[in-house]
Design a protein around this nucleic acid. Structure first.
Length: 160
DNA sequence: AGTTCGGACCGTT
DNA sequence: AACGGTCCGAACT
């Protein structure tokens, strides 16, 4: 696994790449991670890193990214795979409820488990778990911190 | 109309 | 066996 940091206007995100693609993305940490990449990265990963940076910046601006890097979700369960791929179908500016996602993947009673799967999403922002709200347009929770969820939704024009 | 409470549901550790 | 980024209806204020 190669770790790199990705500079954006909102801070340096942390990215973990495997030989299969982007495996994890982390929100900027306080001060501590101003480090640069220490090892020389394979060219394929450098390419993915640039793709990730473009996508991330676009998403943080509330837009639709031109292209995503390959995502390495090998460690996901079948249920998580179903949830996460459903999340990727939500375009910027739209939202769904946990129950709606549950229905969409054919497990209408699994709203809570959907929330759990969202919390386990290793690639926030790119896999837009922030677009899932509680019923009645309540904000719901967010593993990355509600500030981020609100900020992302606001920039996509999904917030009152 | 808004809030709180309690039970029900489901996948994960 | 216990815990969640939930949901829904009922009983409140």
């Amino acid at each position: 696994m190669f770790q790199t940091s990705i500079p954006t206007a909102d801070g340096r995100f942390l990215a973990w790449f495997s030989e299969r693609g982007l495996a994890r993305l982390g929100f900027p940490q306080g001060r501590k991670h101003a480090w640069r990449t220490t090892v020389r990265l394979p060219s394929s990963i450098l390419k993915w890193q640039r793709t990730t940076e473009r996508a991330l910046k676009r998403l943080l601006a509330g837009g639709r990214p031109p292209e995503l890097p390959p995502l390495d979700l090998a460690s996901a369960t079948a249920f998580q795979t179903a949830v996460w791929s459903e999340l990727r179908r939500i375009p910027p500016g739209e939202t769904r409820s946990y129950a709606e996602i549950a229905r969409a993947i054919g497990s209408p009673r699994a709203a809570r488990a959907v929330g759990q799967a969202c919390g386990a999403n290793p690639i926030p922002v790119l896999i837009p778990c922030h677009r899932v709200l509680a019923s009645g347009h309540r904000i719901g929770g967010y593993s990355g911190g509600l500030n981020w969820k609100k900020k992302l939704l606001e920039r996509e024009g999904s917030l009152p």
